[in-house]
Amino acid sequence: TFELKGKVGKVVKIAEDHYLVEVEGDKWIAYSDEKLSLGDRVMVVDVDGLKLKVKRIP
């Protein structure tokens, strides 16, 4: 999972307290300090167990 840091993915689902992002064909639970929208491109900035911390990228 640490090899996911720096990888780019996209938001595929928005849940009440987390996001579902697809990175390299796999779906992961993710969270972010900013509000994300469906389809946003994101970069993995940290890995916390099986959850990814992501940030939006242009």
Score class of each variant (00 low, 15 high):
residue 24 E to H: 02
residue 28 W to H: 06
residue 43 M to H: 04
residue 4 L to A: 03
residue 16 E to W: 08
residue 29 I to K: 11
residue 13 K to M: 12
residue 58 P to M: 05
residue 21 V to D: 00
residue 20 L to Q: 06
residue 44 V to A: 02
residue 21 V to F: 04
residue 49 G to H: 08
residue 54 V to D: 00
residue 12 V to S: 06
residue 27 K to V: 06
residue 2 F to Q: 15
residue 36 L to M: 08
residue 12 V to T: 11
residue 8 V to S: 09
residue 44 V to D: 00
residue 4 L to S: 02
residue 13 K to W: 11
residue 43 M to P: 01
residue 47 V to Y: 05
residue 19 Y to L: 10
residue 19 Y to W: 12
residue 41 R to W: 15
residue 46 D to E: 05
residue 32 S to Y: 05
residue 25 G to C: 07
residue 52 L to Y: 02
residue 53 K to P: 01
residue 5 K to D: 15
residue 31 Y to W: 09
residue 47 V to I: 07
residue 9 G to V: 03
residue 30 A to W: 00
residue 7 K to A: 12
residue 19 Y to F: 08
residue 40 D to I: 06
residue 31 Y to E: 13
residue 52 L to G: 01
residue 15 A to W: 11
residue 9 G to K: 00
residue 52 L to T: 03
residue 38 L to M: 08
residue 51 K to F: 10
residue 19 Y to K: 04
residue 54 V to H: 00
residue 24 E to K: 03
residue 16 E to L: 09
residue 36 L to P: 05
residue 38 L to Q: 08
residue 52 L to S: 02
residue 6 G to M: 01
residue 30 A to C: 05
residue 55 K to S: 14
residue 11 V to K: 00
residue 26 D to A: 08
residue 50 L to Q: 04
residue 13 K to L: 10
residue 54 V to P: 00
residue 53 K to Q: 14
residue 29 I to P: 13
residue 52 L to R: 00
residue 36 L to C: 09
residue 40 D to M: 08
residue 51 K to I: 10
residue 12 V to G: 07
residue 46 D to Y: 03
residue 49 G to F: 10
residue 12 V to N: 10
residue 48 D to E: 09
residue 23 V to F: 02
residue 35 K to P: 09
residue 3 E to C: 03
residue 22 E to G: 05
residue 21 V to P: 00
residue 18 H to A: 11
residue 21 V to A: 08
residue 50 L to E: 05
residue 30 A to Y: 00
residue 28 W to A: 02
residue 15 A to F: 10
residue 12 V to P: 00
residue 27 K to F: 12
residue 4 L to I: 10
residue 44 V to L: 02
residue 9 G to N: 00
residue 57 I to E: 14
residue 23 V to M: 03
residue 6 G to S: 01
residue 23 V to H: 01
residue 22 E to F: 11
residue 45 V to R: 03
residue 43 M to R: 03
residue 16 E to Y: 09
residue 5 K to N: 14
residue 10 K to P: 14
residue 27 K to D: 14
residue 49 G to A: 10
residue 34 E to L: 08
residue 2 F to L: 15
residue 43 M to I: 14
residue 9 G to P: 00
residue 55 K to F: 05
residue 44 V to F: 13
residue 2 F to N: 15
residue 43 M to L: 08
residue 39 G to A: 12
residue 46 D to Q: 03
residue 39 G to K: 11
residue 19 Y to T: 13
residue 30 A to D: 00
residue 27 K to H: 13
residue 41 R to H: 14
residue 7 K to W: 02
residue 11 V to W: 01
residue 8 V to E: 15
residue 20 L to V: 08
residue 16 E to I: 10
residue 51 K to P: 02
residue 55 K to H: 11
residue 15 A to I: 10
residue 21 V to Q: 00
residue 13 K to S: 09
residue 53 K to A: 04
residue 47 V to H: 06
residue 39 G to N: 08
residue 50 L to H: 09
residue 55 K to D: 15
residue 2 F to P: 15
residue 5 K to Y: 15
residue 38 L to V: 09
residue 1 T to S: 15
residue 9 G to L: 02
